[in-house]
Design a protein around this nucleic acid. Structure first.
Lengths: 109, 109
DNA sequence: TCAAAATGAAACCAAAAGGTTATACATTTA
DNA sequence: TAAATGTATAACCTTTTGGTTTCATTTTGA
C-alpha cells in the first residue's frame, strides 16, 4: 500500500509559486490563507490549490483557528529530495565549487 | 537577458521517467537514444521529448556519432537544487535523522 | 443579530504535459 | 546501391495544470 499520492515532493516544488509559498512560510513561521494570498498576484482560490498540493506532499501543515486556516512549513519531506541528490553528488563533486554563484538564498528560485 | 528557459531543473526532475533516465545515464555513462528508449515502456519519440527537456535544463548533453546521438549525464545544474535545499536544511536538521529510512539510493525515485 | 471576513467548493477555461502514429531524412552496411 | 538502422519532426490526442469567477458556509465582532 504505497499510499499512491497524486503529488510528490518533486512535483510540489516544480512550480515557482509553490516554492515562493514555501519560502514565505519559512520566513513568517505561520500564516492564514488570505495573508499568504496577499503576497501573490493570483487569486486566493489559486493559492488554496497550491497549498493543497503542498499539503498532499506533506510540505505544509495547517491548523484551524476560528474561521482561519493557518499554514506552516513542514520541511521533513525534503529529506527525500536530499537523498535523491546525494546519489548524484559524486558525479559533480570536486568538479565545481558548489558555492560559486551563491551569495545567499535570497534569489527567487 | 535571463535566458528564459522553458524548463528549469525543478521541472526537469519533476517527472519520474526523466529521473529514471538520469539514473540510467549515471550508471551507463553514455547511451544513444534507442538504447535509452529500450529501457522504458514508452515510445522512442516520447523518450526524445524527455531528453530534450533534460537537455534544456542542461542535465544531459549529447554528441553525434554517425547516425547516433549519444547522451551523457551533466549533473552540474543539480547544484542549483542543492543550494535551494540548503536554505531549508536548518528547518529540519537535528529534528530527524536524515538517513533514517535510507538504505541506499536503489529505490525508484 | 447581522454584516463582514475567511474559507470551501463547483464550474469552467486555455495552455502545457505526456503520450501516440506517421513520415521523412541521414548514415551504415550487406 | 538498396535495405536497414537511428534520428527528427509534424500532427494529433487526452489528461493535467494553473488559473479564473461565482456562490455557499462558517465565524467573528460592532
Amino acid at each position: 500500500m504505497t499510499s499512491a499520492k497524486k503529488h510528490d515532493v518533486f512535483q510540489a516544488i516544480a512550480d515557482q509559486t509553490r516554492r515562493d509559498v514555501l519560502r514565505l512560510l519559512a520566513e513568517k513561521k505561520e500564516l492564514p490563507i488570505s495573508a499568504i494570498a496577499a503576497h501573490f498576484p493570483i487569486s486566493r482560490t489559486a493559492i488554496t490549490k497550491h497549498l493543497n498540493i503542498l499539503a498532499e506532499a506533506n510540505l505544509v501543515q495547517s491548523r484551524k483557528s476560528g474561521r482561519e486556516k493557518i499554514y506552516h512549513l513542514h520541511p521533513e519531506p525534503l529529506t527525500e529530495l536530499k537523498q535523491w541528490l546525494a546519489f548524484y553528488e559524486r558525479f559533480w563533486e570536486n568538479k565545481l565549487s558548489v558555492l560559486k554563484h551563491v551569495v545567499e538564498n535570497k534569489e527567487r528560485m
